[in-house]
Simulated assay, not measured.
Amino acid sequence: MTAHERPAPAFARAQDGTVLAYQHRGQGPPLVLLAGQANDHHWWDGVREDFHTVRSTLTLDMRGTGDSGKPQGPYSTGQFADDVVAVLDALGITHADVYGTSMGGRIAQSLAIRHPGRVRRLVLGCTSPGGPHAVERDASVRRSLAQPDPRAVRRALTDLMYTPAWQAAHPGPYRTLGDPRMPAHARRAHLLASNEHDAWDHLPRITAPTLVLHGGEDRLTPPDNLPLLASRIPGARTHLFPGARHAYFEECREEAGGLVRAFLTAPRQQ
């Protein structure tokens, strides 16, 4: 199956009965891939196959996106984490590696905190601890994403995701600019869930070996959040991709994928 073919979803149910669509591909121990805010599983289409040499991959359409249910909010990163566990339970998976980027990284933090026995190894990409300790995007970025013209917002978001050189070489379509099928209430609920995330006090409870990754020119989630996360998670390792923006995992695909595969398969230190 190629990255451009749509895998048929299967379905689980969350604790509150919400239908959760998921896509399980490949062979081997599972790697859960968690997408950014207001995006469905297609966020990972450009790099998903890179992990199939060492892992199967499990993606979800988080509530509010894709083929999953779209109940009224509020949503939270803790609730999203519990939704991941509901999918793992439906598949009979006791524990998995977890790789979350952007808001998916916030969900991954919540998963490792709330359900430590379910997370074997943890990768956090282009994300932050949230709350007052996080380094937030600057006002110019917020203004660019609040423009009334949707086309202008899409252009601004594309520039936050990818460098001009990458865009010139890869003209799209891009998979990381949001799920166009999301209703307005679900978009608002995703935004609120991300904004209200604050894991600072709980990060030291993470027991899974952790790798933290970030693009060095990320203005959407500033890279100063990388050392903040690493300082709070025991034994966390880090890597910065100089010059990369928010979607470092695509722009630095070969290096980033290699780092993650090596981290997932390395012997665990005692």
Rank of each mutant, 00 (worst) to 15 (best):
A96R: 03
A10K: 13
P242A: 14
A168E: 15
L228P: 00
E250K: 05
P222A: 09
A112M: 05
P7I: 04
G131E: 05
F249P: 01
Q167A: 08
Y174S: 09
E136T: 12
L31D: 02
H202N: 13
T57H: 03
L60I: 13
A208C: 08
S110E: 11
L60S: 02
L203D: 01
Q23S: 08
L58E: 03
R55G: 01
T163I: 06
Q37Y: 03
L226A: 12
Q269A: 15
T77G: 04
G100A: 10
A168P: 06
R13K: 14
R137L: 06
D224N: 11
P183W: 04
P129A: 14
L229K: 05
H42I: 03
F11E: 09
V47I: 15
Q72C: 06
E254T: 15
L191C: 02
T59R: 03
Y75I: 05
S110P: 01
A86P: 04
P129R: 01
Q147H: 14
D159K: 11
G125A: 15
G125E: 08
E255L: 13
A156L: 10
A35Y: 01
Q109T: 08
A3I: 08
V85P: 00
A168K: 15
L31M: 12
R120M: 04
F51R: 04
C126L: 09
Q79M: 15
H185N: 11
A134E: 06
L160Y: 00
F51N: 02
V32A: 07
T101C: 14
G73F: 10
M1T: 11
T57R: 03
L145G: 07
R13M: 03
A236K: 02
L160Q: 02
D198Q: 04
P29T: 11
A230T: 13
A193D: 09
G28E: 12
V85K: 06
R188L: 12
T2P: 11
G69E: 06
G36R: 03
R118L: 05
P148R: 11
Y162D: 00
A21C: 13
A3V: 07
T65E: 03
L160M: 07
H133M: 13
V47E: 02
F263E: 05
R63S: 00
H95S: 15
P150S: 13
A189W: 00
